[in-house]
Design a protein around this nucleic acid. Structure first.
Lengths: 216, 216
DNA sequence: ATTATACCAGAACTTGTGTTCTATGTCAAG
DNA sequence: CTTGACATAGAACACAAGTTCTGGTATAAT
């Protein structure tokens, strides 16, 4: 019960509330949320807000109109003075046949700028450009940019970059610890997971975002 | 009438509203303001709020509970145009079984902010959230956000959303005109293209970006 | 089949909250 | 002294908005 995946609808609600708050300066009512995400019933919005509150994404003040407090992304709220821009260093390439670079390694000569509202976490993140199409299993293609956070452990369900020692390759998968083995689940739901003994996998970082630019 | 000195009471109200907003995350009601600054009558609070609004310290949304917006130090701020920020309207969902919405249809109640350096083109773009995993062929998964530009023709090699009339479904593919037929090539290089007569495909827009947020 | 759970819709209900009306008091200008 | 703008209090009111109840659908487990 500690960690539950939010439904699409709940994510949508959360994003709408954040957006509404930023744009209007105050918070939406239940009915406004309903109208925005296509829910006709106030009770359903309430139901989903309860879940969001249980999962610590928001905090609600009972009996108070528009009494929602956002916890996740902008606890300080109104400070539009910081522009919400984050310069993420683009450290290099990632390819199947080699371990990924770590933040300390190289100075960032290139950065990509992202807005803070796309990122929840800003510390210690960096970006890599994917080289080759060895990661289509992870729905990541040649030229895509993955934004990573460096860490060497991972919680269940996180999308991580792992180095498989025996195969000498890097792969992006959702990770699940299952006793002394590890299940690596491709993001593509049509593909089967692979299993590996825990000693064989080395977590190199967590994937927090994927950006693909198309068109020329 | 340009610059009027605020009364002690009005300054007090303003400070309280700022404080309340910072601390609680939402805005105070008229009665809460009254209680805090020692006014027993709601009309008096209203009266003073009118003045504060006239003097451009706050902005009120009529009929909306707690609908106060603080304008304080950054009345207009800088527009996001000169910041390289672009607010892209998030118009709705896209799923295999239905045509995609067009920009005119619905008012944008949500936006996502992107930096201009990620986008080359800013006119007429909008975003859609992908529903379901019917587009994994295009390396696009449930929950991903695709940024589109509306257009009904496409050049060779562009990644477009097309409506297949016979199948009654939307799909994302790279398009190639080949005489009177069209080749639709999945982004995933492992998959084979499909071919369709030109009359059967209806270009709905060009995909210019895909954003996937992971984690929590 | 039966139960339980997660999710949703609609409507009724209750309370929260902004608006407005009347009254009172002050004070400076005519 | 009267008038009028400013400032206030109190109460009645109407609508906004949260809560709750009843019922429905799926799905999985028993």
């Amino acid at each position: 019960m500690a960690k539950v995946e939010l439904s699409q609808r709940q994510k949508r609600i959360l994003r709408f509330v954040e957006d509404f708050s930023r744009k209007k300066g105050y918070l939406p009512s239940i009915r406004e949320i309903g109208a925005a995400v296509g829910i006709s019933s106030t009770s359903v919005v309430d139901y989903n807000l309860r879940i969001l509150e249980r999962e610590r994404h928001i905090q609600r003040d009972p009996k108070v109109s528009r009494g929602i407090k956002l916890l996740g992304s902008h606890p300080r709220g109104r400070s539009r003075l910081d522009l919400g821009l984050v310069a993420v260093p683009l450290l290099g390439r990632i390819a199947a046949g080699q371990p990924i670079p770590v933040p300390e390694d190289s100075p960032a000569e290139e950065t990509i700028e992202l807005t803070r509202n796309l990122l929840k976490d800003v510390d210690g993140i960096y970006a890599l450009e994917v080289k080759g199409n060895s990661m289509v299993d992870a729905l990541v293609n040649d030229g895509d940019i993955v934004v990573m956070k460096h860490q060497d452990t991972a919680e269940n369900g996180e999308m991580v970059a792992v180095w498989l020692k025996d195969r000498q390759e890097t792969t992006l998968k959702k990770i699940y610890h299952e006793g002394r083995r590890v299940r690596l689940q491709p993001a593509n739901p049509l593909l089967k997971p692979i299993f590996a003994p825990a000693e064989n996998v080395e977590v190199q970082g967590k994937v927090i975002m994927v950006v693909r630019r198309l068109g020329k």
